[in-house]
Design a protein around this nucleic acid. Structure first.
Lengths: 243, 243
DNA sequence: ATCTTGCCACCTAGGTGCGAATTT
DNA sequence: AAATTCGCACCTAGGTGGCAAGAT
């Protein structure tokens, strides 16, 4: 029997408690955490934007981002999410899907994603104990992470808030010389995706992350270890279980 | 034997003199005509924008648009181009592909397409004489034509000029109550697509065609008659001839 | 008669995990 | 040993023309 492949998580992961997933599907997850400074945040509805170096938010407006499909991410996270990376570039599964709140409806924004190292460790999967273990240190000293600008960018706050924003087209690669704009990662390392909401001044071209007018968000349950082939059988099992 | 289907004209129309097509593929067609006022224009490289009611162009800059794949359009035009329309929406074949020139690289533009009636006649295909004949009059009095805004819109002049702009995703329908944003046409009528280059003021949302800052272009060889099923055998033959 | 619709088999493009072969 | 690459069969989504049946 062969696997079924769809962009719809429900179809791909039949073994999950689908009814539960469906119930919470479009509802925000309940726990969030600030990014970078790692401060806990008890707000129910949204992540507070990080205030770390170089980022800044309009004081009056508290821009918020909710993670969609948090249940699926958590299901993977419990056993250790693995994300395939290939030379040609591989889509993420799960893909990052979010909702944004409290944007200025008439202001233009771009929304982008990047993926940052969680630590400077190298990991390896120990089969006989079915566990991920630290296998040494690495430096992430090389280059700043690549920015994946959402294809709907730029767009008005109104448009962004109207629907779920999906980053399902982004691709991950282990090819350091990639020229297709995919996000370059090191295999066997731990990462976490990050969302940036960028307030746009008219006719601003977005190449790298600007210093001002950016709110950044990330979600702890979306961290993963990069692999070139699935290591943990439980992980690949979820991937291949058909509807 | 079954037909092959590709978005690439070369693959779809093997019977055509492919080598000729290839040779001229990215070269501008040689004859052009002004739209709406129907004045002839002998400029080799581009169509002069129409100056009809409500349109206006920057005097200093002569924005130009070239039709790509003109050979294919002409090949169809010689025998009478037929364009399928369906309730669900059908893509065009050939699709409209253009190049733009003389935009301000740093100015933002949207580029859109609509399809206007060539006359107020109703046509019917007479099998035994293999000919299209006028079958009566209609009024196009109903609604203004739907605007299909190119998905890359808005974008800088620089981006638009860098590559061929393809309208291959637009769909045509005969469903007057269409709610999917497809272009609504009447069957058995003669139409011609039109391209609009729209200079964008910052944070301008594009719903209908604005009064100012628009240059419009069209090409005589792109006119067609709408059908719900191909009438002329020569036409369907070109469509189905495999590589 | 003439035109439209629904259904169908067929096609392409692109994405997927797996196992074998290869590299490090 | 461990990690990566490659080729593969398989899958979905969406587009296509033809034909038969239906509508006008």
């Amino acid at each position: 029997m062969q696997a079924l492949f769809t962009d719809d998580p429900e179809e791909r992961c039949k073994k999950m408690k689908v009814e539960d997933l469906k119930k919470h599907r479009d509802a925000p997850a309940e726990t969030f955490i600030d990014k970078q400074d790692q401060r806990r945040n008890n707000k129910k509805k949204s992540v507070k934007p990080s205030r770390s170096a170089g980022t800044e938010c309009e004081a009056a407006r508290e821009v918020g981002v909710d993670l969609e499909g948090s249940d699926l991410w958590k299901r993977f996270d419990e056993i250790g999410t693995e994300m395939i990376i290939t030379k040609a570039g591989r889509r993420m599964f799960p893909s990052l899907r979010i909702k944004v709140h409290n944007l200025d409806p008439h202001q233009q924004y771009s929304i982008a994603m990047d993926i940052t190292p969680v630590d400077s460790k190298r990991y390896r999967y120990v089969y006989h104990s079915s566990q991920w273990m630290v296998a040494g240190n690495t430096d992430h000293s090389c280059l700043p992470p690549r920015l994946y600008v959402h294809p709907d960018s730029p767009s008005s706050g109104h448009s962004w808030m109207r629907q779920i924003i999906s980053f399902d087209r982004v691709k991950l690669t282990n090819n350091e010389k990639d020229d297709k704009g995919h996000i370059v990662l090191k295999s066997m390392h731990k990462y976490r995706p990050r969302i940036h909401v960028i307030e746009l001044s008219p006719v601003q071209t977005l190449v790298s992350l600007p210093e001002d007018g950016v709110c950044s968000f990330s979600f702890p349950e979306t961290q993963f270890i990069t692999v070139t082939a699935y290591q943990n059988q439980q992980v690949s099992q979820i991937h291949t279980t058909p509807v």
